[in-house]
Amino acid sequence: MAYRPENYYRPTNLEETLNLLAQPDVYPLAGGTQLLAGDDKTAVTGVVDLQALGLNQIKVANDILHIGATAVLTDLYDFLGAELAAADFTPLLQQAIKQAGPNTYRNAATLGGVVAGRLPDSELLAALLVLDAQLSLRTPDTAVISLTDYLSADEAPQGLITDIFFVIAPGAGSSEHVARTPADTPIVSITCWQPSGGMPRLAATGIGVRPFRLQAAEEILADGVTDTAVASAAQAVQATNTHPGDFRGSAAYRGEMAAVLTRRILAAV
């Protein structure tokens, strides 16, 4: 059901944007994939279109990849293919982008929207988590917060996301998921990134309210990826499951799949 906002704004600078967003029941509009597709039970007096702010830039500076909040997923995918094809993380991120939705969705959805929406089943967020992504938030002061903290907070931290960035480093990554059908939202996914010379970082979807880092499992693996450690890590991942279960999969199934996928992904590592 479409929203029926009474006011539409398209500011050209951040100050004006933040002032507008300070009004009650006024929401930012980027790709519109969440706002326009949502139910119409939430009161919306106005929307602030972010497209004139120039926040859609994607660039590499000092070995850091900066992704503007209103960069659409297709542009990010193409940028990675054109400018960072040789980077070790590129296949992981590109796969996660493709998994985010069909091309009609990827052409509209922005990375900032995905982050701000804290989408519960997003493998893209899981990939950014294991890459240790950071966010720039304007409130109007600029603050930097880790994606891990942004997603783990009960309420989304205040502020407009302007930039998502992470350090480009060598390593190897992959993602495993179970879904009712290959193109469907995953029931459970586990994403892994192992920096060169470092220990695996793991993130999950489908076993909590939002994607999160599997810190207990990472700690178990810190001393080495042995068979015993893998078994313990898988057990720890299963134990972290707090998802109540839904039509995609029961709570017990989610927990067990998280363990299965952890074993599979670590076997690949």
Partner: peptide
């Protein structure tokens, strides 16, 4: 009916 959308009520697609 709790799942009146095709994103929730799945039918086989070409990959299934």
């Amino acid at each position: 009916i709790q799942n009146p959308y095709l994103s929730q009520y799945l039918i086989p697609g070409i990959m299934d």
